[in-house]
Design a protein around this nucleic acid. Structure first.
Lengths: 226, 226
DNA sequence: TTTAAATGTTTCAGTTTAGTTACAAAGAGG
DNA sequence: CCTCTTTGTAACTAAACTGAAACATTTAAA
């Protein structure tokens, strides 16, 4: 999966330079001239790294990062800065920067530092790959756990497979043959009604009150999560 | 606990400068003029960071790091170098450096970069210390003792390894293959049910009354501490 | 409204998986 | 050597899971 880098710099030339070159080496780049929409983008999109000018017109970069950190946003940050006084570098690091490069910077060095920072955070983000989620149902395949909101529920292996398949295909109707093929690995010797029972049992566990209707029945076809 | 920094530089002046100043700000510093004893020290002592000259008389610093990395030694490394060509910086990063500073370097910047690198690794190294505790179970690996609350219990070697692995991965389900691989170092010639028995024996020792349920069984998968 | 098909629900037994116990081999320490 | 502890295996028991069957309910079309 492509890594997403968010760049904030009020100098349009630098912004374009970075957008062009980072895209060239395979990153997805989102450039911004100010911090106006950064918070929203961070909450809505998967951002792996922030590259930010230390001297933004609307706010001091390091103050902005400090604010992000206080909101528990841990996305790594590399500062760019025309300043190169030790005091500024110190300030940047202290407020939560992961690296610091002074302009004029060498593009290749920046690429290497990006790679280094992303590498360090790779492990953590890796864990989130095996997380499937649908509304307030969270399925953690690493921990073999299922949460409805904050409550953990216990599912059997069959129920887990079923839920996993439903979430992975959320919005699509899965018919009995599809389910039998993918979960029971057998469409011949297994009763079709077995699926009904399995679905019923899953429904009961993820929605004991029967008021959420996560799993919808499409009569004559199959089931879907919607 | 003090963080330990291993410094390798053939320039005795720089070595002394670093030993003096890093000690001053609270690090434990071990200085070496060459790599001769570095491997041994790394295996015998708790080293949190390596600062290494890129141009050592006995070996190229980056080659040495590459060797360490190939031996699965992941201690973070900051390179010092008189060279400042981009090619050299690139080479250093590619071979597993975590940061790169060119001489003459500003001491305060070095301190900040040390702090940044150590900060990133804090989480990981934290686990490896004697932080092995889960609720009222305390595992002291130095004294080879285990306490439940204030009461010491005697565990065998196998039971201790098992408990250690469970605590180090608390909250995660460890399946039989994982346990066999990490504790028995063998997934082929050892019965899978051996794990059941070992877990049963551990359960009995840490919870004789069977009322705490430290170790949970996830049917079809494995066990976890939760 | 009636009817037939589809789906939901409950129950039960066969199967799978884990817990328990006993025992013997391997290891540690004297 | 001898003894005691540890540990792997096997046999047995207990519990959980799951498929099928029987029965109940819902749905949709006539």
């Amino acid at each position: 999966m492509k890594e997403h880098i968010l760049v904030v710099d009020d100098d349009n030339d630098i912004l374009e330079l970075l957008e062009y070159n980072l895209s060239l080496v395979g990153y997805d780049v989102l450039g911004f001239l100010n911090t106006k929409h950064v918070r929203r983008v961070l909450s809505e999109e998967k951002i792996d790294l922030i590259i930010m000018d230390r001297n933004l017109p609307d706010i001091e970069g390091s103050l902005y990062i400090e604010m992000l950190r206080s909101k528990n946003i841990t996305t790594p940050v590399i500062f760019l800065s025309a300043k190169d006084s030790q005091k500024d570098i110190k300030d940047g690091f202290l407020r939560g920067a992961d690296d610091y490069i002074t302009k004029p910077f060498d593009l290749e060095e920046l690429l290497l530092r990006i790679k280094a920072v992303l590498g360090r955070y790779k492990q953590e983000s890796k864990q989130n790959l095996d997380n499937l989620q649908y509304n307030d149902i969270k399925l953690d395949l690493n921990l073999h756990k299922v949460f409805i909101g904050d409550y953990e529920i216990g599912l059997t292996r069959l129920e887990t497979s079923l839920l996993q398949l439903l979430i992975a295909n959320k919005g699509k109707v899965l018919d009995r043959d599809f389910l039998l093929k993918h979960i029971w690995k057998d469409t011949q010797n297994i009763h079709k009604k077995t699926v009904n029972v399995a679905i019923k049992r899953l429904k009961e566990k993820i929605d004991p009150g029967k008021d959420k209707e996560y799993i919808k029945t499409i009569r004559g076809v199959g089931y879907l999560l919607a």
